[in-house]
Write a protein that binds this DNA or RNA. Sequence first.
DNA 1: TTTACTTTTTAACTTTAGTGAACGAGTTCC
DNA 2: GGAACTCGTTCACTAAAGTTAAAAAGTAAA
Lengths: 191, 191
Amino acid sequence: MQNLLFDFLAKYVSLTEEEKNALVSLNIFHSVKKGTILLEEGQRSKEGYFVLKGCIRTYYLIDGEERTTDFYTEMDVLTPTCVINKTPSEYYVSCVEDCILTISNSDMEAEVNSKFPKFETVCRILSEELLAKERIDFDEFKISSPEKRYLSLLQKRPDLIQRVPQHQLASYLGIKPQSLSRLRARILEKK
Amino acid sequence: MQNLLFDFLAKYVSLTEEEKNALVSLNIFHSVKKGTILLEEGQRSKEGYFVLKGCIRTYYLIDGEERTTDFYTEMDVLTPTCVINKTPSEYYVSCVEDCILTISNSDMEAEVNSKFPKFETVCRILSEELLAKERIDFDEFKISSPEKRYLSLLQKRPDLIQRVPQHQLASYLGIKPQSLSRLRARILEKK
DNA sequence: TTTACTTTTTAACTTTAGTGAACGAGTTCC
DNA sequence: GGAACTCGTTCACTAAAGTTAAAAAGTAAA
């Protein structure tokens, strides 16, 4: 399982055995059960997540209703907004499935960054890439109708549609579950 | 004008005179006329922008129609996706108003980063913050109706509504100009 | 298996956005 | 001044999403 992390990092920088050992000794690998809530609204967490296996989601609780905004699956990184801004969290993070995650602490990361400048470079490049990806996703969301968004999701992340409940997918697409159901029926009709 | 940049950077790191001079000697300050296109679809640019004064916007050209996805005003940073991913650009960047910008080159930045490790830290923190901001904006967009988005824009960036044409604002809100017009009339009625 | 619960679908109705066309107010350019 | 444009608004009509409620399907627990 550790190798998944090292393979991922290898895309950005080559690590020595010493550096790998330093990472392993931090004891960041965790198994987490489906349904576990990793972060709650109002908490001041410093934890960041890297998904080795499984799926986690972020959601807001608005008028007692869950509004899912994102899913993170294998090889995805999630550093919650509250960790970066050092503010209480506005949303929840929970496990859609049983997961294997690395859970790291931002203090710990700062320490590693100063000890191994390589990691700072990895973090910078990764942040830039994630920002670029987020922008593209946002742009595409803005210029698409809900139906186009769903069809594009079918192309890009077909696994999500299988492994995630429809009502969570719906708010991810910016619509109500009923509308998603209708929209899917409409698409099937057309074929 | 240079001080605006240094004040901005001071939020992240304190610079020595030597470092400031190194930045100035790069000759990155530019005046640009309204309507100037800074980046075109298909180009492989390496330029990043920091807005000292004015407003620039990103837009896609779809079926001959402009779809505006973002505006960058005073103290905003724009590193186009194509610069980060080293791919041809999928969108345009142009000046909504006469602007004063810093225009930097990613090769140049890499050089500065290796010469002054401080800058790498600034870039990392800035990327992380921008990513956090982008996520929040995207989340808010997903969980809001066009009307709520407009009202929230009125709160958060009232200047934009004054300085930017309605049809550009409309696609920024994810709707057609006619819908924005109608939506505004609806809001006025309610009052 | 039965019960309880959650999720998804369907339906009827309301509200809002998309579409195409037209109009008037401003610009710019001969 | 008049022609050609752009921009914002309005209108009539169509299409799609929101809302409320209920039925159907699926899941988990007793």
